[in-house]
């Protein structure tokens, strides 16, 4: 089953269509990887799918129902079903790690007993290996810890889909591999759907069930990761020869 489907989707800013004519099918309970050079619109696509910006054309269906980007109720429902891991983590600097992770619960369910919130936060942090840093502020955490903390925050309300924008950018290979493990375990334990932007071939081979390659404003390739590796396509081949796993946008 596909949890997210798009038809003729166009995304961008104002009049600028960054990506056009996208027909995507994101399989439920799997990890889909989105690939593309810097500036190809991966973040823009993720933001659109997460309901943060309206598409410039076409349609997005979430679990079979079309998303109405101009209805607050529809967006609210969508926000209740997705979690997003932003490129820089986007933990709020004014709150501690634990408060950051608790934030979605406290804001969406203000009546939740504090004890329940604390246990949820603790188990979410334990899951990403950060239980001992709960009281620290984001400024005191390393890049990899921030990302893991942000993942805990994205997971705390058990979303159906988690979007991860370059979870491993700026991380050393070991930390980035452990983040991959984390994503895999999230998929396996909770049956969550993950949509991950990444550049690292190694991590694609490990985690990806389906790969979408964006190029030149269009969907360039869509298939299994094995097909991607075996692909004779010129763009895909240069992509992996030239790419070193870093992106700055």
């Amino acid at each position: 089953m596909d949890i997210i489907e798009t038809r003729e989707l166009a995304v961008g800013y104002g009049d600028v269509r960054v990506l056009d004519e996208l027909d995507l099918a994101i399989p439920a309970g799997r990890i889909s990887v989105v690939l593309g050079v810097s500036g190809s619109g991966k973040s823009t696509l993720l933001k659109t799918l997460a309901g943060l910006m309206p598409p410039l054309g076409g349609e997005v269906r979430f679990a079979g129902a079309p998303v109405d980007y101009y209805s607050e109720a529809s967006l609210r429902t969508l926000y209740g079903k997705v979690g997003v891991l932003y490129q820089g983590g986007a933990l709020l600097n004014s709150l501690t790690l634990a408060e950051n992770v608790a934030l979605p619960v406290r804001m969406q369910f203000p009546e939740m007993p504090l004890g329940v919130v604390e246990d949820m936060v603790h188990s979410a942090l334990a899951q990403v290996g950060l239980a001992s840093s709960a009281g620290k502020h984001p400024a005191e955490l390393s890049g990899g810890m921030k990302k893991r903390g942000a993942l805990a925050r994205a997971l705390i309300l058990d979303p159906e889909v988690v979007f991860c924008d370059e979870p491993s950018s700026g991380l050393d290979p070991i930390t980035s591999a452990s983040l991959d493990d984390l994503l895999l375990s999230v998929k396996e334990t909770f049956g969550m759907t993950l949509v991950v932007v990444t550049h690292e071939l190694r991590s694609i081979e490990r985690v990806a069930d389906r790969v979408f390659v964006l190029n030149d404003g269009r969907l360039h390739f869509c298939g299994e990761s094995a097909d991607l590796v075996a692909s004779e396509d010129g763009f895909i081949k240069t992509f992996f020869l030239r790419k070193d796993g870093h992106d700055d946008t």
Binding site: Y79, G80, L92, P104, R153
Partner: peptide, 21 residues
């Protein structure tokens, strides 16, 4: 700086209305 660091987007996907929060 919260906007630039995507913290405001993060608030929104957490179901928070940033203009209110």
């Amino acid at each position: 700086s919260m906007v630039v660091l995507e913290e405001v987007d993060a608030l929104r996907t957490m179901g928070v209305v940033p203009e209110k929060y």
